[in-house]
Design a protein around this nucleic acid. Structure first.
Lengths: 139, 139
DNA sequence: ATAGGAATGAGAAGCTTTTTCATCTGATCG
DNA sequence: CGATCAGATGAAAAAGCTTCTCATTCCTAT
């Protein structure tokens, strides 16, 4: 992901946008960021970028299909860099852990259901909530 | 749905709670309400019930499993009376229409995925977004 | 380098939702 | 049936999260 991806999306290549992209890419462990998460990491990195800009940029990235916005049950948006194939999420309601999965059976059924209901499907979201292995063993 | 359902849930049978239940049940066409929706209907019905109470009561109903809270992409919670079998939702992104469906294949796969990922599944949410038949024909 | 339009930062404002606290109501017991 | 008291309510304040405003700054094309 680099400056040409921004250009392609019709976005000027600015320092805030590059820095935010970097953070989303760094993601050793974390791949799902709230706006606040990104903002905090920018502060830690010594970047003087406002929270309003973070929101603006993330929204533009979403429009440009560079990131995907999720609506988990947490009450705020969570952003994820758009790379690799489509996948859905399974979340731990105790610790907040997020795992990903792909299931072609479910994907196919969804398309069939949309078709049978007369809808032209544009998108879908599937979240499975549960208690992860680690949290179960703590009980 | 009546007072004994409230008692069973450990909730006192109060006027606000009964009125809110009535509104959720009335639902000739609508079955999905935001807190604001419920509040407006209470006002129209001449009931002097505060918005804070609506939120409180809906949250209690959710805890008591009387209603289900949905997180559509609209940015606010939507509540639905818990009756009939479990179902998922397909929504029109143009007009906001909400349809329901049940698909045992998807249900089963979800349980399998949770199990394979080491999760004890507590819940799941599946929303299909698309453009409904009526909106397609307007294009 | 320069000009002009786009982008940014800071703070205000907007929305949804929750909290606070004084007042009121409904269940229980006499 | 009336007193009692925990629990419920209303109004307003406050708390998130997110967007908007506007003066200033930064890119890009010239």
């Amino acid at each position: 992901m680099e400056s040409k991806d921004l250009r392609k999306a019709g976005l000027k290549v600015t320092l805030p946008r590059m820095k935010i992209l970097e953070i989303l890419e760094a993601a050793d462990d974390q791949r799902h960021f709230s706006a606040e998460d990104v903002y905090k990491q920018l502060l830690e990195a010594g970047e003087d970028i406002g929270l309003a800009t973070v929101y603006r940029v993330l929204t533009q990235f979403e429009t440009a299909d560079l990131v995907m916005r999720h609506h988990f049950e947490s009450g705020h948006s969570v952003f994820e860099l758009n790379r690799g194939p489509h996948h859905d999420h399974i979340l731990c309601v105790r610790c907040g852990k997020v795992d990903e999965f792909v299931d072609e059976t479910i994907e196919r059924r969804q398309r069939e259901i949309a078709e049978n209901s007369g809808y032209r499907m544009t998108d879908h979201s599937l979240y499975i909530y549960g208690i992860c292995e680690a949290c179960q063993s703590k009980e």
